Amino acid sequence: MTVGVVLLAAGGSSRLGQPKQLVRHQGQTLVLRAVEMALSVGHGPVAVVLGAHPDAIALELTGLPVHCVRNADWALGPGGSLKAGLSAVLATESSGGPTVDAVLVLLCDQLTVDASHLKSLVTTLKTTNAAVVASAYDGTLGVPALFSRAVFAELEALPPEQGARGVIARDPSRVETVPLPGGNQDVDTPEDLARLK
Results as ranks from 00 to 15, higher is better:
Val3Asp: 03
Val5Tyr: 01
Leu7Trp: 11
Leu7Met: 14
Leu8Asp: 12
Leu8His: 13
Gly11Cys: 08
Gly11Ile: 01
Gly12Leu: 11
Ser13His: 09
Leu16Met: 10
Gly17Asp: 10
Gly17Ala: 00
Gln18Leu: 15
Lys20Glu: 12
Lys20Phe: 09
Lys20Leu: 14
Gln21Leu: 03
Gln21Lys: 02
Leu22Met: 14
Leu22Asn: 13
Leu22Thr: 06
Val23Cys: 05
Thr29Ser: 11
Val31Gln: 02
Leu32Trp: 05
Val35Phe: 03
Glu36Leu: 15
Met37Arg: 09
Val41Gly: 09
Val41Arg: 06
Gly42Arg: 10
Gly44Arg: 00
Pro45Asp: 09
Ala47Ile: 00
Val49Gln: 01
Val49Tyr: 03
Val49Cys: 12
Leu50Thr: 00
Leu50Arg: 00
Leu50His: 06
Ala52Glu: 14
His53Ala: 07
Ala56Cys: 04
Ile57Cys: 04
Ala58Arg: 14
Ala58Asp: 15
Gly63Asn: 07
Leu64Thr: 03
Leu64Val: 04
Leu64Ser: 01
Pro65Gly: 08
Val66Tyr: 05
Val66Glu: 09
Arg70Pro: 01
Ala72Trp: 06
Leu76Cys: 03
Pro78His: 00
Gly80Gln: 04
Leu82Asn: 02
Lys83Asn: 07
Ala84Arg: 02
Gly85Tyr: 03
Leu86Cys: 03
Ala88Leu: 08
Ala88Ile: 00
Ala88Trp: 00
Val89Glu: 09
Ala91Ser: 15
Thr92Ala: 11
Ser95Asp: 15
Gly96Asp: 10
Gly97Thr: 06
Gly97Leu: 03
Pro98Gly: 04
Thr99Pro: 05
Ala102Thr: 00
Val103His: 00
Leu106Glu: 06
Cys108Glu: 13
Gln110Gly: 02
Leu111Ile: 14
Leu111Ser: 08
Leu111Asn: 08
Thr112Tyr: 03
Val113Glu: 07
Val113Gly: 01
Ala115Tyr: 03
Ser116Gln: 10
Ser116Asn: 12
His117Phe: 11
Leu121Ser: 01
Leu121Cys: 09
Val122Cys: 11
Thr124Pro: 09
Lys126Pro: 05
Asn129Tyr: 08
Ala130His: 09
Ala130Pro: 13
Val133Gly: 05
Ala136Ile: 07
Asp138Thr: 10
Gly139Thr: 03
Gly139His: 07
Val143Gln: 08
Leu146Ile: 08
Leu146Tyr: 10
Phe147Trp: 04
Ser148Met: 06
Ala150Thr: 11
Val151Cys: 05
Val151Ala: 04
Glu154Ile: 03
Glu156Arg: 15
Glu156His: 07
Glu156Val: 12
Glu156Leu: 15
Leu158Met: 08
Pro159Gln: 13
Glu161Arg: 13
Glu161Ile: 08
Gln162Gly: 11
Gly163Leu: 01
Arg165His: 11
Val167Asn: 00
Val167His: 02
Val167Ala: 00
Ala169Met: 14
Arg170Gly: 12
Asp171Ser: 14
Pro172Tyr: 00
Ser173Met: 04
Thr177Val: 12
Val178Phe: 06
Pro179Leu: 13
Leu180Ser: 02
Pro181Leu: 10
Pro181His: 11
Gly182Met: 13
Gly183Tyr: 05
Gly183Phe: 01
Asp186Met: 15
Asp188Met: 07
Glu191Pro: 07
Ala194Gln: 14
Ala194Trp: 09
Arg195Cys: 13
Arg195Asn: 13
Leu196Gly: 07
Leu196Arg: 04
Lys197Asn: 12
Lys197Gly: 12
